[in-house]
Structures are given as C-alpha cells and as structure tokens.
Amino acid sequence: MSEVKIQKANNMPVQSPLVPEPMVPYSCKNSRTVYAMCEVNEETVRRHLAPTPFEYVSNLCMIYVNNFLESPELPYMDSGIIFTVKYKDMYGGYYMYEWEDNDVAIATGRYWGYPKKYACMELEKNGDYVHGTTTRKGVRLIDIEVDLSKPIENVPSLKKTFPHLNLLTIPNPDGPGIFSQRVTARDNSSTCKTLSNQYGEAKVTLQCSSNDPIGDFMPVKVLGGGYSVTDFLATMENGWAKVIDTLI
C-alpha cells in the first residue's frame, strides 16, 4: 500500500497532487532549442491578440521546439510561438500558443497563465542539420528545419522576450463566464545561462488542427533560424510569476 503525504492541500487533486509541491525550484542542464525567427501577417497577429488585453507591437515572432528532458524535476518537450506584446507600459514575450508532452508541466505552467496544451514533440540534430516537429491530434502543427552549415549573420530577435506576460484565466465552475482573470509576469532569465547559439538558414511549415490555429500564420517570411543550448534554472526568488493586474 502506498503512503500519500498531503502537504498544504492547495493543489489538485488534494489527496494526490499532480503538480509537485513546491513547484520551484527546478532546473535543466543542456536545454536544447531549435527555432526560427519569422515575420507574419500583421492583421493575423492582431486578430489572435484580440481576446487578450495585450497590445500589438510587431509581426516578428519566434517559432520553436525545445528539449527539456534533462530536467531532474520536470522533464518535458515544449514548443510554441512567441510575440513581443505590450501591457500598459510593460513590454514582454507572449506565448500565443504553446504545447508540451507532460501533464505535470502543462498543469504547472497553467498556474501562471501559460496557454499549454498536450502535443508530441521531436527534436533531432544530425551534424549541422537540426529538425524539430510538433504533432497534435494527428496533425503536424510545427515543422522547423535549420541548416547550420549555411550560417546567417544578424538574425533578428524579439524586442522583448522577458518577462513572459501571461493571462491567467479561471472559468466559472457553475456556468459560462470567467471566475478570475489576471495578468502575470514571469522572468527567470537572470539565472539561465546560454552555453551556445548557432544561426543558420531555416524552413518553417505550420498547420492547424481542429482547435490549434497556428496554421493561420502561414505563409511566414523566415528571416533565419538557430540552435541553442542553455542551462535553465528557476529559483524560489524568480521562478514564480507576479500578478501585474486583476481584470476580473
């Protein structure tokens, strides 16, 4: 018979929490990412931002697939599309859409407002060729190819990636509507160290599934891509999100 130890009972399910307590600190050595920097249609970006309180800043985005499997506390694969947005006088990176393959990581991220869903990711590096994919409901949502043998200089970056600006939304339990909605900011960049970052020519294909509209951003203008390796650390001091505003 297993022994279930309940700590604060502030998690779900209370008798056997899905998310570890506490959620931080956690880390990952050699977190690997393949990414592409792309320009997309401005009208499309504005349309996808419309349900949020965030303001349009630029049509430049980063599309990525990440391998976080070396984390001893929270191993997962991750992917998404990030834009720089503005909330009042604050600029930050907004994960417009994001997917992961570990239900613990999905639930943890949703505590802070990350829009995580379940999908299957693959990231492979063969010599100078790096390939990343994201598949959900039988649809390949993201396909990124980067050729590091064809280096590119001056690949653009987002105006702001940190803090991550999120919209933490909790639905009503007794009917349609929102019970609570808060804008959060999270920034653990000070304890992350980039070990390497190589640029190269990139190709990107995006597709929609029945409820994953990332394919709306096609066609994309690919400005370059890269492959980075990072030592990640979220500490007790910077791993939590801060509530910037309460909307509801």
Score class of each variant (00 low, 15 high):
residue 43 E to I: 07
residue 90 M to L: 13
residue 216 D to K: 08
residue 240 W to V: 04
residue 100 E to T: 11
residue 56 Y to R: 04
residue 216 D to V: 04
residue 194 T to I: 14
residue 31 S to A: 15
residue 238 N to V: 01
residue 133 T to N: 04
residue 152 I to P: 00
residue 50 A to G: 07
residue 91 Y to V: 05
residue 159 K to Q: 10
residue 89 D to Q: 11
residue 46 R to Q: 15
residue 191 T to M: 06
residue 90 M to R: 09
residue 29 K to I: 08
residue 213 P to W: 05
residue 62 M to F: 00
residue 115 P to G: 08
residue 58 S to I: 05
residue 75 P to Y: 08
residue 59 N to H: 07
residue 218 M to L: 05
residue 114 Y to F: 15
residue 182 R to Q: 14
residue 69 L to D: 12
residue 46 R to K: 15
residue 166 N to E: 12
residue 110 R to T: 08
residue 190 S to G: 04
residue 158 L to S: 01
residue 74 L to Q: 06
residue 91 Y to S: 04
residue 59 N to R: 05
residue 100 E to N: 13
residue 2 S to H: 13
residue 215 G to Y: 00
residue 152 I to S: 00
residue 103 D to C: 14
residue 95 Y to C: 06
residue 20 P to H: 11
residue 203 K to Y: 05
residue 244 I to N: 02
residue 41 N to W: 01
residue 170 I to S: 09
residue 196 S to M: 09
residue 119 A to D: 06
residue 19 V to S: 11
residue 40 V to H: 01
residue 36 A to Y: 01
residue 248 I to P: 03
residue 226 G to H: 00
residue 137 K to W: 11
residue 2 S to P: 15
residue 177 G to D: 07
residue 62 M to Y: 00
residue 28 C to Y: 02
residue 16 S to Q: 15
residue 232 F to D: 06
residue 94 Y to N: 02
residue 152 I to G: 00
residue 156 P to H: 03
residue 110 R to A: 09
residue 203 K to G: 07
residue 32 R to Y: 00
residue 161 T to K: 09
residue 187 D to K: 02
residue 65 V to C: 05
residue 208 C to I: 02
residue 99 W to G: 01
residue 9 A to M: 13
residue 180 S to C: 13
residue 217 F to D: 01
residue 203 K to A: 09
residue 99 W to Y: 13
residue 235 T to K: 06
residue 158 L to H: 01
residue 5 K to F: 11
residue 125 K to M: 10
residue 21 E to D: 12
residue 212 D to M: 03
residue 77 M to S: 08
residue 211 N to F: 13
residue 22 P to L: 11
residue 20 P to T: 11
residue 105 A to K: 02
residue 39 E to A: 04
residue 2 S to V: 14
residue 48 H to K: 10
residue 39 E to W: 01
residue 94 Y to M: 04
residue 159 K to M: 08
residue 79 S to K: 02
residue 229 V to N: 10
residue 221 K to T: 09
residue 160 K to M: 08
residue 160 K to H: 12
